[in-house]
Simulated scan of single mutants.
Amino acid sequence: MTIARRSLLATPALLALARPALAQEAWPSRPIRMVLPYAAGGATDVIGRLIADRLSQRLPQRVVMENRTGAGGSIGSAFVAKAPADGHTLLFHNIGHAVIKSLYATLDYDPAADLKAATIVAESPMVLLVPPNSPHRTLAELVAFARANPEKLSYGSTGGGGALQLVSLLFLRAAGLRMTEVPYRGGAPAALDLASGTLDMLYDAGLTGFALAKGGRARALALSGPSRSPVMPEVPTMAELGFPDATFMVWQGIFAPGGTPDPLLARLQAAVAAVLAEPATRARLMELGAERLVGNPPAEAQAFVTAEMAKWATILREAGVRAS
């Protein structure tokens, strides 16, 4: 066979191999759909829309947020997991992504295999609150009473693997406590019950939790983050108070279908990192309570998510939270 003949036979194969590369070169070639698996208005939704807006200014195509809610976030996540792996359908999710498999016995996608992390965007602390008239003025006093009176104290939770439930379970596990979980449909009604003294303890997002404490509607005992907050620097961290294993940050990240090429993920991550470096974007995210902006590479982000999945599977199992 001549060299010319071999070249002619090889051409279709070479062209087939070139197509993914050409597609990546053109990315994005049309508007990007970024799915958020929760209702509009929450912290993850607000942060996601900010990131989408800023990415739209940097990329040659718009990034459009779309809320696809239901089943603890699994409906929106499954939609992205089954989408073409071409970088035009993304998922903006939070820590709920790491626990969904532990909460639902049946899912029509595999969170670990069918979605790939592009980057972690931001992390936010939560603050442990007690009623303004609570007899427990320090975390040590609260812990001592709870240990002597198992399940007598109550804490607010939104259940379903939400941040309020997760951070509370982490604290109870670290301190060796048993309290009574009181379910709520959202953080706002729980905060009202805390302010009235109906509820004994509540974790809240740092931004709103500090507002409650500053307004005299709650007393802040500890912060879940690794360092004190500039908003209320007098509030100590869990680690400072002897509970480093209760350190907790709510995170948000961007995910793509599992088959998305690594070079495309790297381009997406670079664009997000550039957005997070903008002074105006950083200032706005800080206002929203995101005290740590991340923007890490895909491999690092995926390793973090994998570790989170393993950690929360253990904690939820030990707490008796079973998949339904």
Rank of each mutant, 00 (worst) to 15 (best):
R217L: 14
R228K: 13
P233A: 08
G216E: 10
D200L: 04
A239S: 15
L194D: 07
L164Q: 04
Y184W: 00
G242E: 12
M249Y: 03
F210S: 14
G215Q: 10
M249R: 11
L170I: 02
T260R: 02
Q165H: 00
L202C: 02
R219S: 13
P230T: 15
A271H: 05
T260E: 04
A190T: 02
A218Q: 08
G258Y: 05
F171Q: 02
S229M: 12
S229D: 10
L172N: 05
Y155T: 04
G253Y: 08
G215E: 12
L169I: 02
M201K: 01
F255S: 06
L177K: 06
E234Y: 07
G162T: 04
A190H: 00
Q252N: 14
G253H: 13
G176V: 15
T208P: 02
G187M: 04
G216V: 15
A239Y: 06
A220I: 10
T180P: 01
A188P: 00
M238S: 10
P233K: 07
R228Q: 12
Y184N: 02
G258A: 09
Q252D: 13
A188H: 03
G176H: 08
S157Q: 00
A218R: 07
A195I: 12
G206K: 05
A218I: 03
G187F: 03
L199C: 04
L153T: 08
P183Q: 00
D262H: 08
A246R: 13
Y203E: 02
A211N: 10
G206N: 11
G159F: 00
L264T: 09
A205W: 04
G160S: 02
P261S: 14
F171V: 05
R173G: 03
D245V: 04
L221A: 10
A222W: 13
T158S: 03
L194V: 13
R267G: 06
A239H: 04
S224E: 05
D245G: 13
A246I: 15
A211H: 12
A239N: 06
A205Q: 06
T237C: 11
M201I: 11
T198I: 01
S224W: 09
E181C: 00
T208W: 10
Q252G: 06
R178F: 05
G253W: 06
S224Y: 06
T208D: 07
S229K: 13
G206I: 15
L199D: 04
V235L: 07
L170P: 00
T158C: 03
M238F: 15
L241C: 11
